[in-house]
Nucleic acid binder design. Structure first.
Lengths: 208, 208
DNA sequence: CATATCCGAAACTCAACGGTTTCGGATATA
DNA sequence: TATATCCGAAACCGTTGAGTTTCGGATATG
């Protein structure tokens, strides 16, 4: 490549002709998440994603430099997927808030996130950016909701202020992850409510 | 191969010459577990295991038909590795028993088991035998100990008999797994005791 | 001591997959 | 309408790793 070619390559002048179609990017990322959740990072191939998204492999590589970048992007775009922090339920009791938060949609979203995490588990320690992406897109949003609901309960004097908010906010997620990954059962509504009633509420001194 | 050769191959007559040396099998399985815990199933190679065990790759294939069988065998042989069900601590209180069970050795053993599980996570859904091996070698032994300690507490009237023993016996393991895999922090003695004091004991009505 | 078998090392085969390139056809811009 | 760029499909390349084979040296058995 001559210096002239280099200069031409550096300047991006996409003025004439068809523009790149970015409308299908979300579909591709969704396909990537599906394959990831089903088969895990290492066994997932670019071909699988392309086929599922009904796109060419070359199209994927035009947008993401590598498999790793595609996956990181896909995980990042799950952020706040099933959570609207704006209008959380406010029922007046901790149990009411927690239970109201268990909707079919959020159960399904949580299940998907756990499966994605399982698919990334072995890879998460190699790829540095991956741990961050998982943390901020999967783990943190859920924990934030629980922290808020707990804080409300503290503010209204329903539960003691010196409770271990950090562990409490991760309790349901931990049990759901264990149930899904290890016991290979689904963390359905019944299970989640049972964790709340048998573990979380008793732990803060509330007998349901 | 002629019928005569086949017949000769079917009959195993290792009468003369050197016998196969099985004394190093445990070292090889231990090496496999180390690599598994460090790199995960998919990125683990037979060469890595052979090198770590200072053995030839051919030696491994003389004993195990495939990578999958080697790993299943390695996981299966962790059974009861760090647990002696025979003489568990019996301090007279649930907290005493649970805390007495947290020894440096058992912390390390638990940590290793979690890392092995993380390495197997994505693979566990493909290989059918793997889920069973993990269940009976990693998950069940720990749960059994906790169930026993909880049952003792019930028998002596320390905690209510209608508590959710199943979830309680998995609580510590769930939190430890979440902390190790997701938060990527170590589940050390301080953490484990804190889970017992802040979550488990309050949940059964005991304020420490 | 003789020999059948084992061992570790290394070379080898083969398939899968990440990543690149090419190509004919479609399409948005001018 | 003309053209520059896009698209999906498919062929292609290079590497990696599972599994096999070969080989010289070691060793237990007889």
């Amino acid at each position: 490549m001559t210096p002239i070619d280099l200069a031409a390559a550096e300047v991006d002048t996409p003025k004439l002709g068809r523009k790149r179609d970015h409308t299908r990017d979300p579909e591709i990322l969704a396909a990537a998440l599906d394959v990831l959740a089903e088969t895990g990072y290492d066994r997932m191939t670019i071909d699988m994603v392309a086929t599922r998204a009904k796109a060419g492999k070359a199209t994927l590589y035009r947008r993401w430099a590598s498999k790793a970048e595609l996956v990181i992007d896909a995980v990042a775009c799950m952020k706040n997927a099933g959570i609207d922090m704006a209008n959380l339920p406010d029922t007046g009791t901790l149990r009411g808030d927690l239970v109201a938060n268990i909707k079919p949609h959020s159960i399904q979203d949580g299940d998907r996130k756990i499966h994605v995490m399982a698919g990334l588990m072995s890879m998460i320690s190699c790829e540095p950016g991956l741990a961050d992406a998982v943390q901020s897109a999967i783990v943190e949003p859920r924990a934030r909701v629980n922290r808020l609901l707990l804080q409300r309960a503290i503010d209204r004097g329903e539960i003691p202020a010196d409770c271990d908010m950090e562990k409490l906010s991760l309790l349901v997620a931990s049990m759901a992850m264990y149930r899904t990954m290890v016991q290979r059962k689904t963390a359905n509504r019944e299970f989640l409510i049972s964790v709340i009633d048998e573990l979380l509420l008793p732990a803060v001194g509330l007998r349901p």
